[in-house]
Design a protein around this nucleic acid. Structure first.
Lengths: 207, 207
DNA sequence: CCATAATTTAAACAATTGTTTAATTTCTCT
DNA sequence: AGAGAAATTAAACAATTGTTTAAATTATGG
């Protein structure tokens, strides 16, 4: 029975924090969402901040877990990229608010970055950067900094979900239509990035 | 003398709202930034919300003005794209917080969208969409929905500025280094997008 | 069954919020 | 210079915030 309420509050906190952000929601809102008394939030988690830190860390885990998994696989590099983008789109279709949630928290509280370092370490240890540099040194892959490769991939995966309200009003499309757009957009993103990173593959990828 | 304090408050509000967002800042903070009494904020602007609406509208103007200007020019289509990206990067280098500011406000207050419609109308009237469709019908430009073309451009221009804190920690770079990365990233974005939109130009653009 | 601990509750806490009021200062104009 | 308007101020307003307290309820273990 102990777990019941504690977990209910955690679930409610996840939903509310992601939807509204840390500052834009109240302890009472979380309690209400969990169907519990306000004081229970602090009884189980000491403070709103402590609870948020907990939630944030677990979200970051989910956020990066799949990425690391792909990097550690023994797929050929191009397939890693392709699978990574596929998974990002699938994940973000379920949790479109997360990129905003993470970026906002990082700008509000730069120290939150430290919680991410262990997971980021795993990306580094996967050897994917080394693999990329090797492909670049043979001339098979376009020579560009890892920062920019990351930017290319993440920009084209995250932003389309972050900007959904903006895009919908600009082009006057509804929910269903936009979801459909995202689905085909994913294929464009994959082609465009692979084309750009591997110019010599172009004919194959474009077929 | 009347304009002095009113303008000072507006300036302070712009700075504070952009840096912290609407909910994450206080009237007293704006007043302090302006060096004025709190009551003056409401004396001149009725309420914090009214002041924000004013600021938001003017920011959106700046945000879209340059875009419309490019679209209305008589440059060839490819050059419009190139110039658009150049200007976006230049503008965002000066105001990197604006994309986040806009997206957050739109998710917080969906009705704010209505303020943007007049400016968006101007984009439509520039005929740039018609121009694109014509290029697509001749097969010169890749066939894809306007939503996705917009997404490609805006994703690759805005996200790199929005994700600066995230990217800096992921790759362990400092301010100066990241600014430099952005500069060269711009050229990649231009090449990649033009390559993808106009596959037949590839050799030329890649030279 | 009962005492002890754990859980839950309602109420209050001080701090901060946006906003208003009423008094005071500063400006404007004849 | 002085009356009336505008601008500015300090103070207070009610509402909401995160958090704490102290009492009430429930569960636990001998």
């Amino acid at each position: 029975m102990i777990k019941k309420t504690e977990q209910k509050i955690k679930d409610a906190a996840l939903a509310v924090f992601i939807q509204k952000g840390f500052v834009n929601c109240t302890s009472r809102e979380i309690a209400r969402e969990a169907g519990m008394n306000v004081a229970l939030v602090n009884y189980y988690f000491r403070s709103k901040s402590k609870l948020f830190a907990l939630i944030f860390e677990s979200v970051m885990q989910d956020f990066l877990k799949s990425m690391v998994q792909v990097f550690c696989s023994d797929l050929p590099f191009r397939e890693k990229i392709r699978l990574l983008i596929e998974r990002e789109f699938a994940f973000l279709a379920e949790h479109p608010e997360i990129p905003n949630f993470v970026l906002n928290e990082l700008s509000r509280n730069p120290k939150a970055i430290e919680d991410m370092l262990p997971v980021l370490q795993m990306v580094d240890e996967s050897g994917v950067f080394v693999e990329a540099k090797k492909l670049q040194s043979t001339g098979e892959m376009r020579s560009m900094d890892m920062v920019q490769i990351t930017l290319l991939i993440v920009s084209n995966c995250h932003y389309p979900f972050m900007a959904e309200p903006l895009m919908k009003v600009i082009h006057g499309v509804n929910d269903k239509e936009y979801k459909a757009q995202l689905k085909t957009h994913k294929t464009h993103v994959i082609s465009m990035i692979l084309n750009y990173l591997f110019p010599n593959d172009k004919i194959l990828l474009n077929a």
